[in-house]
Simulated scan of single mutants.
Amino acid sequence: MLFYGGHMRAGLTLGEEVFTEAGCSVLVPSRPGYGCTPVTTGRSATGFADVTAELCAHLGITRVTAAVGVSGGGPTAVALAARHPDLVERLILQSAVGPLPWPDRRTYRGAQVIFASRTESVTWALVHTIVRHTPDAALRLLLRDLTVLPVRQVVAGLRPEHRATALTLFSRMRSGHGFLNDLADLRTGPDLKRLLAEVSQPSLVIAARHDGAVSFAHALELQAALERAELVESRADSHFVWFGDDWAVIADRVRDFLLSDRRP
């Protein structure tokens, strides 16, 4: 069960092959406000975790190999594992928001303007135009806040396949009402701390120190708060751990984790 982060929805893919190669099927629901999911459908991380459990029951799914949370989707995966332990066997968090204040004030205020209901479509129309006509400029613009390294260095170091993946994603992303809903919900750190304390499943936390969107400190807090967590540090240059030169090694670790029998 895979929960993507901001600006992502069902139909966009990033790194899912690591799960399918381990023999798992992947179910990706659009979180509240993204894709075709109304923002009122389980508006909070805990609310949507409960909706997801109802979806599994409706589909006849009684066991999920792992709840996977990416970036802003991390708290929803945590909530699903905490509130529905009989459903979820493992927890995997990738570049995930943890129990620290997020986002910073500048990001929060900027998002209120450029992703508001009246401006969101214009913002993404402009982004999609830049991606089509000046891809290098688009990558520099969009990766700037996703890395702590000089963005030109990061763009220059992208492999062709990673460059193509990033441009494809950026050309199809939308925020809908989801991103502002995320920002409102993710500012409630104390609730996430409580949920993390209730997770009993084995957990794998994957993060990069060069992540400029969700700092590595979040990963350290997640590891400390989870009872049975392993932290895997990525050498990626940005928020996209899948683009790191060590992703093949990390992917092997993910597959081993998925295939291991580590239930209490």
Rank of each mutant, 00 (worst) to 15 (best):
V199D: 03
P150V: 05
Q112E: 12
M173L: 13
S117V: 15
A82P: 12
T129Q: 15
A82Q: 02
T76L: 09
D182P: 08
D104C: 08
A156W: 04
A77H: 05
I130C: 07
A197V: 05
L93K: 04
W124N: 04
L143C: 02
A137Q: 12
L91M: 01
V199W: 07
I130S: 09
T129A: 15
H128A: 08
T165W: 11
W124V: 01
I206D: 00
L204P: 00
T76H: 08
D182Q: 09
W102K: 00
K193Q: 11
T147K: 06
R144T: 14
T107E: 06
T119Y: 13
A197Y: 05
G157F: 10
L195H: 11
L141I: 10
A197T: 10
R90L: 00
T134H: 13
R90P: 09
T107P: 07
H162A: 11
D136E: 11
T188Q: 15
I92S: 01
R159T: 07
Q112A: 08
L143Q: 00
P101A: 13
D104P: 01
E89S: 10
R152G: 15
L100W: 06
G176C: 05
A184D: 14
T188P: 09
G176E: 00
L169K: 05
L100T: 02
P202E: 01
V154E: 03
Q112F: 06
A116S: 15
R109Q: 12
V154W: 04
R174W: 07
M173P: 01
D104T: 09
S171N: 01
L158A: 05
R105E: 15
W102D: 03
V154G: 03
P99T: 13
I92E: 00
A111C: 12
Y108K: 13
R83A: 11
D104A: 09
L169R: 09
A138Q: 03
L180W: 11
E120D: 04
I114S: 12
L149I: 06
A184G: 14
E161Y: 10
A79F: 09
V205G: 02
K193E: 14
L204K: 02
G189K: 12
T165Y: 10
E89W: 06
L196P: 00
W124E: 03
N181D: 12
R174G: 07
V155F: 04
G189R: 13
F170D: 03
H162P: 00
L142G: 14
V199R: 01
R83I: 01
R174A: 11
P160T: 09
L196M: 07
T76G: 07
R83W: 05
A164Y: 03
H128S: 01
A137D: 14
F179I: 06
P190Y: 09
A77N: 02
M173Q: 10
G189D: 08
R174Q: 09
T76Y: 08
H133K: 13
I92D: 02
A138F: 04
V154P: 00
L142D: 02
L100Y: 08
R109M: 15
R83G: 08
D191V: 14
A137G: 14
F170E: 02
E198Y: 09
R90N: 11
R132Y: 12
L139E: 03
